[in-house]
Every structure is written in structure tokens, then in C-alpha cells.
């Protein structure tokens, strides 16, 4: 069966945009819904805080909605950018369109849900402690900004997949594999860290609403915990860039295709668990150091040891991906 190249291109555009918006919308929608639910609950308990609550909710939702806006922008690009300005041959261009959708869709899923977590915690916190609403809102924005970074990495990779002529000199099917592999590495690799950093920020904000005088300690613990939780996303970004720009010879035909996809699956899906797990560890660490700032060093030590152990499987995945790329 021979298909018109134009039809294949259209299939690629529809698939890519569908995956981008389908997955990219879930996280932010659930997150914003959580925030609205907690705001309603807070207003029900303390009706006099209504105006402050609505403000915190809207700020949280505006920041938490931005991953879905990234997905929308990339999705519209996948649908409507003329094929003359996209990179690659007919086949590799279609792969790039689908892979960009995978990268931005999965990457924004985690970040969107992750940004909703602190927004929900912020609304509950304002209800609990309306006098310190501005402090709580400030910590919420800081936490959301960090939780958003995997979606920004994913947007960068999606734009590279669409517009840059990556892997020059590789065989056509190897380039298809590199595109799909890089999309999975960054998309799935960003899912866990985005959600995990959001959970961390939620714990910090809950702690802060009970003990607002520990702002400095709690935000410090939160940022350290979030930074560790981000490592799997950076592994995904690293493997995606290595495959696209630093591989000398990835192999021909089916070997090159399988090598790139396998490395992407290993490092991408391997990052989900460690990202979420490190985030949960840091969430409890933040609560503990907010409650008792005097033992911050002890809590921080335990949290970092626990996170390091939780990251070990992400490092195994990275090792397997590097072996697949360079040894075999």
C-alpha cells in the first residue's frame, strides 16, 4: 500500500498534536482543579478570607497552567508550521513531529500536576493562616517555578526536534529512532521530577502555613530537595542531546533505530520513580524542618541520604542507556 507523502505528514501532525495536548492537558487540569477545590474548602471554613483566597488561587492557577500553555503552543506549531521550515526529509520530519508531541505532552503532564500541588497547599495554607498569606503565596510561586523546569526542558527538546537538523550523517531510520528516543527520554524523564518537585513544594507550604516564622529554613530545605528531585530530568535531557548531537555512529537501519529508542526508554521511564520518590522524601523533610528548625541539619542529612538511595535506580537506567549507546 502506497500512501501519499502529504497524507503521511498529516498523520504525523495529527498524532503529534494529539499526544502533546492530550497528555499535556491532564496534569495542569487536575492541578488547577485541586487548587480550586482547596480554595472552596478554605472559603467555606473562613468566609472572611475570600478575597485573599481568590487571589492566591488565581496566581497559583496562572503559574500552574503554564505547562499546558507550552503544550498548546508546541501543539499548534506541530499542526500548522509549514513543512518547508521544518527539519529533515519526509520520513524524519514526520518522526520529529510525533516525537515533539511525546516530549512536550509527557513533560508537561508531570509539571502541570506538580505545579497544582503547591497551589492547592497554598490555598489550604491561606485558610489556615490568613495573616501570613503573602509569605505563603511567595513560597508557592518559588516552588511552582522549580516544578516547572522539566516542562521548559521538554519545550526546548520539542523545538529542537521540530526545527534543527539533528544527527547529521546518520541513516534515515536511525534519525527516526533518535527523534522518538529523544522525545521519550525528555518527556517521560521529566514526568517524575515535575510531579516530585511539586509534591515537595506542597509539603513546604503546608509546613509554612503552620509555622510561618521558619520561612528561610523551610524554603532552603525545599529548594535543596527539589534540586535533587530534578536530576532524572537532567539525565533525560543529557541523553537526548547526546543522541541528537554527540553520537559519532549510531548504526544503520534497525540497529540505529533500536539503539536510540532503547536508550530513550531506559532513561526516560527510569526517571519517573526516582523523581517522584525523591519528591516525597523531600516533602516530609520540609514539614519536619518547618516544625523544628533547630534540627534542620539532621533532617537535611537524612533527607539527602534517602534521596540519594532513591536516585540509585535512575543512575542504573542512565548506565544502561550509556552502555546501549556506546558499548554495544
Amino acid at each position: 500500500m502506497d500512501l501519499d507523502p502529504h497524507i503521511i505528514e498529516l498523520i504525523g501532525r495529527y498524532l503529534g498534536a494529539g499526544v502533546a495536548l492530550g497528555f499535556g492537558g491532564i496534569g495542569a487540569a487536575v492541578g488547577m482543579g485541586l487548587a480550586a477545590g482547596n480554595a472552596d474548602e478554605g472559603i467555606m471554613r473562613q468566609p472572611e478570607t475570600q478575597s485573599q483566597m481568590v487571589r492566591t488561587m488565581l496566581i497559583g492557577q496562572a503559574v500552574g497552567g503554564s505547562p499546558s500553555i507550552f503544550a498548546l503552543v508546541i501543539g499548534l506549531m506541530i499542526l500548522f508550521v509549514p513543512s518547508a521550515s521544518l527539519s529533515g526529509t519526509e520520513t524524519t520530519m514526520v518522526a520529529g513531529l510525533i516525537a515533539a508531541g511525546i516530549a512536550i505532552g509527557l513533560g508537561c503532564f508531570g509539571s502541570g500536576l506538580g505545579c497544582g500541588w503547591p497551589a492547592a497547599a497554598g490555598c489550604s495554607g491561606v485558610a489556615r493562616n490568613p495573616r501570613h498569606a503573602s509569605r505563603i503565596t511567595q513560597a508557592m510561586i518559588i516552588g511552582q517555578a522549580v516544578a516547572q523546569s522539566p516542562s521548559i526542558f521538554a519545550a526546548v527538546i520539542a523545538l529542537v526536534l521540530l526545527f534543527v537538523n539533528f544527527a547529521p550523517g546518520a541513516a534515515e531510520w536511525a534519525i527516526v529512532g533518535i527523534a522518538i528516543g529523544a522525545g521519550i527520554a525528555m518527556g517521560a524523564g521529566g514526568l517524575g521530577p515535575g510531579l516530585g518537585s511539586g509534591v515537595t513544594a506542597g509539603g513546604a507550604i503546608s509546613g509554612l502555613s503552620l509555622w510561618p516564622q521558619t520561612y528561610g529554613t523551610t524554603v532552603r530545605t525545599m529548594l535543596i530537595g527539589q534540586a535533587v528531585a530534578q536530576t532524572p530530568a537532567i539525565f533525560g535531557l543529557l541523553i537526548a542531546f547526546i543522541m541528537m548531537f554527540a553520537m559519532q555512529d549510531i548504526g544503520d537501519g534497525i540497529i540505529g533505530f533500536a539503539r536510540a529508542v532503547a536508550a530513550g526508554v531506559a532513561v526516560g521511564f527510569g526517571g519517573i520513580g526516582p523523581g517522584i520518590g525523591s519528591g516525597i522524601a523531600a516533602e516530609r523533610g520540609c514539614s519536619a524542618s518547618a516544625a523544628r528548625p533547630r534540627i534542620e541539619a539532621l533532617v537535611l542529612r537524612t533527607m539527602l541520604i534517602g534521596q540519594a538511595v532513591s536516585q540509585s535506580t535512575a543512575i542504573y537506567s542512565l548506565i544502561i542507556a550509556l552502555i546501549i549507546l556506546y558499548v554495544l
Partner: peptide, 9 residues
């Protein structure tokens, strides 16, 4: 790697 990561966390 998904399960151990979450469980250890």
C-alpha cells in the same frame, strides 16, 4: 526503575 524509586522515597 519506577517502583524502587517511589518506594525508597
Amino acid at each position: 526503575a519506577i517502583g524502587p524509586g517511589i518506594g525508597q522515597g
